[in-house]
Design a protein around this nucleic acid. Structure first.
Lengths: 229, 229
DNA sequence: GGGCGTGCTGAATCCATGTTCAGTATTTTA
DNA sequence: TAAAATACTGAACATGGATTCAGCACGCCC
């Protein structure tokens, strides 16, 4: 029907645009728009312009399709990240691929991040690793202050960023920005989120006195159990 | 229908423990443990020790059941909040009801926060309002520094807190703590999350110079569109 | 006691889903 | 060109879902 064997993608993670790739992309869009529960074999088939049977023919099962989508999304994000390196402001780990032209990937992640998937888990792990790198570089460059718990801070920031992605509906409701929307970073309302976010992680919100009080309180919780000091 | 006439509501949101309440509680537990997609009428019925038909008899439909659960959870959380007022450390908006003995409510929210529900939306709105109050009090007390965008900061902090709740599986994987678990606040691994979290929101992670640079950059994004300066 | 409504049951119904499969077109191989 | 493999279709099929319904049991009113 469509074939389209040639037309080779120059730098993409995979260069296919075969029927099987079209099905996979249609599935990603469905997952992004209707969620995991709302995505059926028939709907994907219709969206891709093929028969329901073909979906299973290519991917074995709906689970197989889901896994293929996970793998592909993870691959695309890794690839996008490569390109973004160097341009890296390093402000936000997820900023790079959110600003990029990646269609429904944000929406896909927003729906998929909440349930089990090895590929997505690995992706999240990678994001944390990257965040650690960014922070380390930031400290060396003198942009970021030395941190008590670098790895912990990186992890928490990734969780918060992705949390915002997952709760995009509420962010849209409350702040007028949707982080799953392509062009999120250039949206006129973007500062409604970025402003407070950077105000918080930039200078913190506590006064000096209270900040150290809290620090002691939290440190005190480790003592009795860990018993370092 | 509902009976449960006597036993007057002393302080609880609703005083029932009728069959219908048992079904609703079983449903909440199912939603918390198996998610929305994994919760079927039959499963709820089995968990509550009743027949499938009775579930629909009491709630009209599964949607009705879901709505009833939303309402109830929101009510319980509001009630718990009332009690926590005054004890309020105000460190974390969600801390109060996470530490409280509210069984599966955290897990319920983690699963439900991502899809549409008026009751849950209202609950989130309330949390933001509370956060604004806490921050305002903090500023008056001298614990929190004056903020450029108080409301924005409150919103973002609520989104991040709830985001961590929704992504509890990843938090468990990465930090060894699960915010949906009862007793999250007293878990030995709790500091693995709280430490970095307070380090970030407490004092911020940027050096003074970079923080103001970022602030200008974000402020500059409003300019061209809003045209303030 | 006799009706009567309400709580409740569980089999039956209807529907949408994932998956299978027999068969057709199309491409590749030789 | 002939044969084989592969892409693809679309009508089954089986499963499990929500919801319906006829009927049972029990407490309340007259």
């Amino acid at each position: 029907m469509d074939s389209a064997r040639p037309s080779a993608a120059v730098g993409a993670p995979t260069d296919d645009r075969t029927t099987s790739a079209r099905i996979r992309d249609a599935a990603i869009e469905c997952y992004a728009r209707f969620g995991v529960g709302g995505t059926t074999a028939r709907r994907v088939a219709r969206e891709a312009g093929v028969s329901p049977g073909l979906v299973i023919h290519h991917f074995g099962s709906m689970d197989g399709l889901r896994a293929a989508c996970d793998e592909h999304v993870a691959a695309v994000i890794r690839h996008t990240k490569q390109e973004a390196i160097g341009a890296g402001l390093g402000l936000d780990v997820t900023a790079a691929w959110r600003d990029a032209d990646i269609g429904h990937l944000g929406g896909y992640l927003a729906h998929v991040l909440v349930d089990d998937s090895p590929a997505v888990d690995r992706l999240v792990d990678d994001l944390v690793t990257d965040a650690v790198d960014y922070l380390t570089q930031g400290i060396e460059t003198g942009l970021v202050r030395p941190l008590d718990d670098l790895h912990g801070a990186a992890t928490v920031m990734v969780l918060w960023s992705l949390g915002g992605l997952v709760l995009h509906r509420h962010m849209q409701r409350l702040l007028g920005v949707d982080p799953t929307e392509p062009g999120f970073g250039t949206d006129p309302s973007f500062p409604a989120y970025a402003g407070p976010a950077y105000e918080i992680i930039g200078e913190g919100i506590f006064t000096q006195a209270f900040a150290s009080h809290i620090r002691d309180a939290v440190a005190g919780m480790t003592g009795p159990t860990g018993g370092t000091t």
